[in-house]
Amino acid sequence: MNAAEELKQSFPESVTGVGLQTNKPLAVVKKEDLLMIAGKVKEMGFDNLSVVTGIDYVDHFEVIYNFFSYNNKQNLALKVILERENPAVDSLFSLYKVADWLERETYDLVGIRFSGHPNLVRILLPDGWEGHPLRKDYDMNKEQWVTIGEDGEDIVSTDGSGILRRK
């Protein structure tokens, strides 16, 4: 019995499905119970949260958490399914410190809000960037440019003034 099936046995209400994802055990979790399940996962010895992934499936979003146990050399993935409008899920920052940056990246590129995150701001793109680029409905026709302000901060503009050469 792998780790996902153990979770299914312990919490039949919260875990809606188990399976394999690239030969690693996967558990689909209700989004209300994610924090509780993640606490249980940490108790089971999964001490490393390696990746947080956000996926846009046009009609819904998915967030996949990949855990790893250094002692048991085991993998486990948790998946939550979020609605299209205003996707939000509990932050795992209280359990895993690394969730700080991973969730900021997921917020930056996919636009999923993590409630309870201490500092949910963009991490890769500058503040003021419009849209979340890895969403399917991101407007690719609108070019955005970055310039440096007086204090070294990034300023986003759409006309490219101050950066493009005059031709």
Binding site: W145, V146, T147, I148, G162, I163
Partner: peptide, 10 residues
């Protein structure tokens, strides 16, 4: 990248 571009110009 767009964010590196002003640094390269500088």
């Amino acid at each position: 990248t767009k964010r590196m571009a002003p640094r390269v110009k500088l």
